[in-house]
Simulated scan of single mutants.
Amino acid sequence: MHIEILISPSVITPPASSVDAGVGALATFTGTVRGSENDQPISALVYEAYQPMAETVMHRLLTELAATHPCHFVFVQHRTGTVPVGEAAIHIAVQAKHRAPAFALLAAFMDRLKQDVPIWKTDTLPA
């Protein structure tokens, strides 16, 4: 499986995905900042990451998950710094031969990302 990971303060613009003839599924997820945190209105979230370790852990998780959910390609982009309400904090694209492993890998990765990867919401900015 080919894995690409990008962690940066750049605005996330999901790239156009090209697929090869062996791919029958493209599953994507874009997580955006909503207008409240803990039932309080906010204008943004601030993300910090220990980038080298975050990239290593993401790569390891994706490789582990691919053993049970075989996929061809995974692209992960996570934003750091201040992310205003309505903008994307994360975008993931998974390509697989069939939809079931693409969906399963995507869902499992998001669950593990929040538990295991050293990326933190460090602050919320009031609305």
Rank of each mutant, 00 (worst) to 15 (best):
E4T: 14
E4I: 08
I5P: 06
I5V: 13
I7S: 07
S8K: 08
S8T: 11
P9S: 12
V11H: 12
I12Q: 04
P15E: 10
A21F: 00
G24H: 00
A27L: 04
T30C: 12
G31R: 05
T32R: 13
V33C: 02
R34Y: 03
G35K: 09
S36Q: 15
E37S: 15
P41Q: 10
P41H: 11
P41D: 10
E48K: 00
Q51M: 09
M53V: 13
E55M: 12
R60G: 12
L62Y: 06
L65A: 06
L65W: 08
H69Y: 15
C71T: 15
C71L: 04
C71A: 13
F73L: 09
F75D: 09
F75N: 09
H78I: 03
T82L: 12
G86P: 02
E87G: 07
I92Y: 03
V94C: 02
Q95D: 01
K97W: 05
A100P: 04
P101S: 00
A102S: 00
A102Y: 06
F103N: 01
L105K: 05
A107H: 13
D111S: 11
D111N: 13
D116T: 10
V117F: 04
V117S: 06
P118F: 06
I119G: 07
W120D: 12
W120K: 02
W120E: 11
K121L: 06
T122V: 15
D123P: 00
T124M: 08
P126I: 13
